[in-house]
Design a protein around this nucleic acid. Structure first.
Lengths: 190, 190
DNA sequence: TGACAACTGGAATCCTCATTCCATATATTT
DNA sequence: AAATATATGGAATGAGGATTCCAGTTGTCA
């Protein structure tokens, strides 16, 4: 599923690919780090050329690293959506999303200007998952119906991302956010 | 108050300073623009050196431009805080903050990595203003008391900034955000 | 093990920018 | 208007970083 019908990579190339990815992830996690190809190469213990070649360019490497990071939370979202328990699923997912963002808040700081297709796709799926949950919760009458679902989805999505840095200083923040948000989303609250 | 006891600038220097500032503001407002000194200089119709010299460096120029942009909203915040009508002031200020952010959403995209002391100070004052209003509203019993004021301030602040890009696509979004947020902040809502 | 294709390190290259410099031009002052 | 202090344009400089190149190395296959 990942690399279809290409000539198989040599064993050392596979190894280095993996190492480059890990090094990128590590640097991504460190706020204030210089995310240069050279820095990644040094961290991975290999030459610059090797790093670039492994993915065909810096952006592709970062894209792969971030996508790999995002994968589990997206998967988790799919699960929650499928066995959909309505509002509770949504609340649970928001909690996990925020925890995820808090844990990786340094990442998004360093992504400006990069072209990250895979990452973008996953992010879009995240939004889509939340939108689906919002729709279902609303059909069940669990959230207010005087506000457009799209607006609610946007509110949740933006808030989930916004919390990142702040909640890293104050872990309890996420709970406060969720409490206020979901209280405000209850039906007949106007 | 702005330039104390320095030797007065020559008339043309004053003019160029102004033009550089305006050019920077213009470019800042355009999403996707390259915010290089050369671009600013070209836009302002002057040489690169002139632009840099006017403020002593790129960062200082951008800082001045953004601070100038922020000034009115901060001033407005001070007014609202002084004639404090409690929760209504807070709600009004949030509305204005969000409108402001929506209008200038492109700005913050381009500020990563720059050192902007004046801008930072104004932002801090914005937070301080919101914190003050939250405190007052809480003392008046207008918002729930089961969540730390600091958390509420953070929630409002982060949300206000988060809305920027999204609400540029969908103007009604800000209202939805505020409705949900303030409903969720009502006392005895738990 | 030998032959060969696939990889590797990291120096060289190429870009994008901020900042500096200085010969030239313009304001200011007398 | 002449003298002087300031300011200007924009080429030159230099730093930071992505990408390319290739001589040398290592995995792979027979």
């Amino acid at each position: 599923m990942s690399t279809p019908n290409e000539r198989p990579l040599r064993a050392d190339a596979v190894r280095n690919r993996r190492r480059a990815l890990d090094a990128a992830t590590t640097l991504l996690a460190e706020a204030g780090t210089t995310l240069s190809v050279d820095a990644i190469a040094k961290r991975a213990g290999m030459g610059t050329g090797t790093v670039v070649r492994a993915f065909g360019g810096k952006d592709a490497l970062i894209d792969a690293a971030v996508a790999e990071l995002l994968e589990p939370i997206v998967k988790r979202g799919r699960e929650l959506r499928n066995g959909d328990e309505g509002l509770e699923s949504l609340r649970a997912f928001m909690r996990e999303l925020m925890a995820f963002q808090a844990a990786h808040y340094a990442v998004s700081d360093q992504l400006g200007g990069l072209d990250l297709p895979a990452t973008g796709k996953l992010r879009a799926e995240l939004v889509e998952i939340v939108a689906g949950m919002v729709k279902r919760a609303r059909e069940r009458g669990e959230i207010r119906d005087d506000i457009a679902p799209a607006a609610i989805t946007a509110l949740l999505g933006e808030t989930a991302f916004a919390i990142a840095k702040a909640s890293n200083d104050t872990p309890a923040l996420a709970d406060a956010f969720i409490t206020v948000l979901f209280d405000g989303l209850r039906p007949a609250s106007g």
